[in-house]
Structures are given as structure tokens and as C-alpha cells.
Amino acid sequence: MTGPRRPQWFHFGPWVFSIDAAQALIAASPHDTRPLDVPAWAAAYGLTHLDNPNPWLTSLIGPTDTAVNRTYAMTTDLTQPLIVAQISVNKAPPGPLLIDGTHRLYRAWREHVPRLPAYVLTVEETRQIQDDRLLGPGGTSTIPPPNR
């Protein structure tokens, strides 16, 4: 017997992004997919270093070598689009951030798939699914709510 599905979150620095909210947003307002360059994104995200036995190689962004379940990754559906958010801080030009699909990206890179489909959210859409609180175990906030 399986219980209810746990909410999916992507953590990046002080931000938390709701993958469930992103999927609902995309379902409510269909988006065209764009091709994501697998070799470039895998390298930028540090996935190309995960299987390197050199312990001194590290990625500045992306998962650690224990954060990607390689067995699971090789079973993922490469036809399911990834989700890329657009982050803009202090009025800087927006930058892309992969928030859903790391395991699919890893599999595609390992299998030499050149491109994957991706939904690219706008800055405004990204803000709709972004939360500035830190989530602890079970998806609960580690920051108490403000007194009102």
C-alpha cells in the first residue's frame, strides 16, 4: 500500500520552488517546449563530473555525487519535458535554472541524447512557484510564520 504522493520541491540557495505548482501552471496555460542542449546543460550542471573517481572534482552548481540515484535515472521517461525556471535578482537579466528533470538530464547525457524537451517558465511564472522559506523534512517550513 502506498501513501499519498509527497509534494515535490526544488531547493536552490535560499529559494524553494514548487514543482507541483509549476506542473499545474503549465497544465492550466499550455506552453510549447523548447529543445534543451543536453551536453551543455549536463556540463554546466556538473553532471559530467558525477562518475569521475577524482574526489577533487566538484561542481559549483548542481547535485553532489550522492544526490543522483543513477539506477532510477536510467528508468526515467526522456519524453517528459524538463522544467526550467527564469531567475532575476536585483533587476539583473534573467538566468535559466533547471528545477525539474535532473535525473532525465543525467540519463540523456549518459545515453548521448543531444536534446531534451523543456518547458521554460517566465520570470513572472517562476515567482508564482517560488517560496523564500526553507523547507525541512516532510515539506514543512523551518521558519516560523510571522505574527500577525
Rank of each mutant, 00 (worst) to 15 (best):
H103I: 04
V84A: 08
A67Y: 05
D37N: 13
P35A: 13
L134G: 12
H31W: 08
T75F: 12
G62N: 09
P93E: 11
P30E: 04
D65P: 08
S141Q: 03
D100Q: 01
P114R: 06
T142C: 13
P81N: 10
P53W: 13
T142E: 14
P137M: 01
A85I: 15
T126V: 07
A73K: 14
T140C: 09
L98N: 00
D51H: 12
P114K: 03
V16T: 15
A24L: 11
A40S: 11
P96Q: 07
T75N: 13
A67W: 09
P146I: 07
P55Y: 07
A108G: 05
A40V: 08
P53R: 15
A24P: 01
P53Y: 11
V84S: 09
D132I: 00
H11T: 10
V120A: 10
D77I: 11
I26A: 04
G138P: 07
P35T: 06
T75V: 05
L135F: 15
Q8T: 05
P137D: 06
Y45E: 10
Q130D: 03
G13Y: 00
W109G: 01
P30G: 06
L121N: 05
T2M: 02
G46K: 02
L25D: 08
D100V: 04
R70A: 07
F10R: 14
H49K: 15
Q8N: 00
A67H: 04
H31Q: 14
A27I: 04
P145Q: 12
T102N: 00
A44H: 12
A43G: 04
W9Q: 10
W15C: 12
P137A: 11
P114L: 11
M1Y: 00
A67N: 14
A28W: 01
Y119H: 13
I61W: 11
V89T: 13
H49I: 14
L47S: 02
L116N: 08
P94W: 09
A28R: 12
R110L: 08
G46V: 02
D20F: 03
P81D: 05
A92H: 12
H11A: 06
V68A: 04
A108T: 02
G3F: 08
P144T: 10
R34K: 13
A73L: 12
W56A: 09
